[in-house]
């Protein structure tokens, strides 16, 4: 299986923000960040966004980038980071 370093790092950041209590035991890159997944609230999601900016040295555009779709799961967020890095 191919290792995706961006996805791995994004998922690690999500897990770090969620903490061991909220991170589902069977979490995978498609686990929702919000309800029925990591149960991250708006403050947690902000922390994940800022952590991604710091980690990957990118800046998101508030309206265009941060939509319910891109913030749905670690995979979608990693896709966003990748698109920002390649832009």
């Amino acid at each position: 299986m191919t290792v995706d370093p961006i996805l791995e790092r994004v998922q690690a950041l999500v897990t770090e923000v969620a903490g061991p209590e909220r991170a589902p035991a069977d979490a995978d890159p498609d686990t929702p960040l919000g309800d029925s997944g990591y149960w991250l609230d708006s403050v947690d999601v902000l922390e994940v966004i800022l952590a991604c900016e710091r980690e990957f040295g990118t800046v998101f555009e508030e309206g265009a980038d941060l939509t319910p779709e891109t913030l749905y799961s670690a995979r979608r967020l990693a896709d966003l980071v990748r698109s920002k890095l390649s832009a």
Binding site: V43, V45, I49, T67
Partner: peptide
């Protein structure tokens, strides 16, 4: 609302 985390970011 669309993406409360995004709203906080704004």
């Amino acid at each position: 609302a669309p993406s409360p985390g995004g709203v906080l970011y704004r």
